[in-house]
Design a protein around this nucleic acid. Structure first.
Lengths: 167, 167
DNA sequence: TAGTATCCGTTTGGTAGCAAACGAAATCGG
DNA sequence: CCGATTTCGTTTGCTACCAAACGGATACTA
């Protein structure tokens, strides 16, 4: 499932057509979607094995730390929204980050159902040290692309996000 | 973290620059990488909530079924490789698919460490019915893009996969 | 051919992720 | 006010995912 130049893909294309009988196949869409997923997996895997593992952070943990760094103390619901996570998932991520000493919880006086989450000093020191390295790593991941290609890629993906994101 | 036209992103850019002090930020790379991840999440989420949930399949389960459909019976190691999963993960996925009655295991006589995995009749019927619908869904996900844009997107991503995939 | 090293798939222990159920707290309607 | 509804974050139950440890089977080497 890599690209048209891959002989195994051409085999796959032929085999799929066989399996499909006469029905037609939207091969361009299939390749675009499957490459989105493969690229995301590769990028995440490499980030976690590289930079992030040194700090004991997963991709989701890093994202959460980053959001808190940029936006400051936030209530759980807003944080989950910004991190693109279900609220139940965020509870677990924050729990892990708390265990590592990176974030802290604080009750909201005005509404006792709510909880504020913010960076600890250790969390702040970590993200300040980590982010520049993460950004370098991001540069490596798309190092094969020119500046305009990166922008083109981001824009094409943005249009996919809009389509796929609108339930 | 959506796009340059998003006022919240411009805020974020300014805020990040503040946090970074004088250090420079590779914003193009950051956007490209984060959009890859966001798009993959959106695409997967929508597939699982839509087509796949009707068949009781996760993204990984679907991929495994698809690979077995196209390539036929495979040994575990090859299947894991083709599905881009760790071998331990594949054990779990196959276990789930077995429970659902979609695949079966068979010992390899020549080497008793190995196991062959293949579709059951029910699994075959399922993927034959499911794949055309999944492919339609893929078309929807990239429906905002022209054919050449889809190919351009796939190609840009392929170059990211190559870079990120080579440890 | 015996001993060692390597190669399999599985298991284990951990984090991540979702949906749905839950309980406490706030809000709304009368 | 007070009962019903809504809105929080958490918990629960499930699947997925990885790395590392494991134990059985095979291959290698002397």
């Amino acid at each position: 499932m890599q690209n048209r130049a891959d002989p195994r893909l051409l085999d796959a294309e032929r085999l799929i057509q066989e399996r499909l009988g006469g029905r037609r196949l939207d091969f361009d869409s299939m390749l675009a979607v499957s490459n989105i997923y493969r690229a995301a997996t590769a990028v995440r895997r490499r980030a976690e094995k590289g930079v992030l593992s040194e700090f004991g952070l997963s991709w989701g943990g890093f994202t959460t730390l980053w959001v808190l760094w940029v936006w400051g103390e936030m209530q759980s619901a807003d944080l989950a929204d910004e991190c693109d996570l279900a609220k139940g998932t965020l509870t677990g991520v924050v729990k892990t980050l708390e265990k590592r000493g990176f974030v802290k919880r604080a009750p909201v006086a005005a509404d006792r159902r709510r909880v504020n989450v913010s960076l600890t000093d250790a969390g702040l020191a970590t993200i300040e040290q980590l982010f520049p390295r993460f950004n370098l790593y991001e540069g490596e991941m798309v190092g094969n692309l020119s500046a305009s290609e990166k922008q083109e890629l981001a824009e094409l993906l943005r249009r996919v996000i809009v389509t796929a994101g609108s339930q």
